[in-house]
Computed example of a mutant assay.
Amino acid sequence: MKLYYFDVLNPRKVCALARHLDLPVEFVHVNLGKGEHKTPAFLAMNPNGKVPVLVDGAVTLWESNAILCYLARKAGSDLWPTDARQFEVLRWLMWDATAFAPQAGTLYFEHVIKSRFGMGGPDPGEVQKATQGFLGFAAVLEAHLRGRSYLLGDALSVADFAVAITLPYAQQAQLPLQDFPEIRRWHAQMNTLPAWREPFPDLAEPAGLAEAI
């Protein structure tokens, strides 16, 4: 298997899971600064021109949450459950993609990506809007985590790898977590996983194109 990545949010979660499951994955760094994500060869794998992409024999898969589920199934892992809990996982993946991640991801973009790639300072309007949105959705997550070790209760799942993805950058992205002790506790628990702390196989090179994020 080959996993094409760059050290930003969505590739981070699939790299972390692949390493956590100790899968025989060849990590292929895509140099976004050189436009490698826009070459004909890469676009043939993912017409969106974005990372991550997984290639496993005849299977080529893009979209990070789909890759999470594929890798867990490939490993025979219960992180992608086959019983009724699968619907719970799907619920949290969809909630994250449509609600939580857009708010947290905007703060990550404004405070981390712009600074990293010389794109100017944060847009105060975008920051204010995303902060308010984040607070609302974080309250939902906080309430759900009370009395639960992970999103599905006592069982770690791919949903945790997806929903927690901005939390390693909480300080840099200025995520307002001070009033959410359960979210902080949950992420501290994720940080006990070596692959979560160190998901990337090596240091990626700087990129220059925000559209690739």
Rank of each mutant, 00 (worst) to 15 (best):
34 K>N: 09
35 G>I: 14
38 K>N: 11
38 K>M: 14
39 T>Y: 10
40 P>D: 06
41 A>Q: 15
43 L>N: 08
45 M>E: 04
45 M>I: 00
49 G>T: 09
51 V>C: 15
52 P>C: 09
53 V>W: 00
54 L>M: 13
54 L>E: 09
56 D>W: 00
56 D>I: 06
57 G>N: 10
58 A>Q: 14
59 V>I: 14
60 T>R: 11
62 W>V: 05
65 N>W: 03
70 Y>V: 07
70 Y>E: 11
71 L>V: 09
72 A>Q: 02
72 A>L: 09
76 G>Q: 08
77 S>A: 10
80 W>T: 11
80 W>G: 06
82 T>V: 14
83 D>I: 03
84 A>H: 09
85 R>P: 03
86 Q>F: 14
87 F>K: 13
88 E>F: 00
89 V>L: 03
90 L>C: 09
94 M>C: 15
97 A>C: 10
97 A>H: 14
100 F>R: 01
103 Q>W: 14
105 G>H: 05
115 S>C: 03
118 G>K: 00
121 G>N: 08
123 D>Q: 05
124 P>T: 00
125 G>A: 10
125 G>D: 12
127 V>R: 04
128 Q>H: 11
131 T>K: 06
136 G>E: 03
137 F>S: 11
137 F>K: 14
140 V>N: 11
144 H>N: 00
145 L>I: 01
145 L>N: 01
146 R>A: 15
148 R>H: 13
153 G>R: 02
154 D>N: 06
156 L>P: 00
